[in-house]
Amino acid sequence: MKYAYFLGCITPNRYPGIEASTRKVFDAFGIECVEVPGASCCPAPGVFGSFDLKTWLAIGGRNIAIAEEQNCDIMLTCNGCYGTLQEANHLLQENPHLVEMINEILAEEGHQYKGEIQVKHCVEILHNEVGLDTIKEHITKPLDGIKVAVHYGCHFLKPSEVRGQGSSERPRMVDELVNVTGAESVDYKDKIVCCGAGGGVRTRELEKSLLFTLDKVNNANAVGADCLLDICAFCHLQMDVGQTELTGKFGKELDNIPVLFYTQLLGLAMGFTPDELGINMHQIPMSDKILKI
């Protein structure tokens, strides 16, 4: 199995631990990750889609076209990137006039969108292609006793008619991926509610966007979760950096809760060290309970 790893912005430029842990875990399952040379910002669906849909589609189409040149499907680690590239691919595959429009724009750089590949989220590949049974065979340090508050984020699931990941109200995929590590995915209030970062709200209205995050943190703490777990680099930033902004810049009181990306949690259960997975590079320190796994 081979995938073109589309990095986006926040994964490589803010949370390289997400990139390192994903590469390590995929390598352990024998999945090759090739580069998407010269890829750019996806660009973010709620932000650039809100500025100019044509530019958004053209840059998205360009990124897909470069991946097509590597002859394999796209894998990615951010719901924003997934939202844009999966939706752009869907729109382009359904509408020949859009392909014509963006290929005219891409011609100067020598790229051409063909519509021959799929865009997949890393957890989708782990769940549907590697499979829970194979993952279980690779668990050397089961995460017994760790309670995990799963945060799906919005653009992995919605709009469900385009994403095709099943129920957007009661998803199961990531909970199953957590439980197979030996950890326990716990229910908490407003589990499927947004982190607050998307749609340009974090950029334009930081304090308001962090109100979502404050609720997330309090709701996860209320059920005794040991960590928040995400599958999106942007949610990850909002929930990790956001806690320090809430207590620092905005003087809110909260109990810090560590934030992990799924492949970091899985990496721990597969025997990688916290340093190899970049877990100690987060703003909110890991608890001893997690570090002693």
Partner: peptide, 12 residues
């Protein structure tokens, strides 16, 4: 207009 996070809950 700019306070929507594009979470798609309304759309769904």
């Amino acid at each position: 207009l700019w306070l929507c996070t594009t979470c798609y809950t309304c759309y769904e």
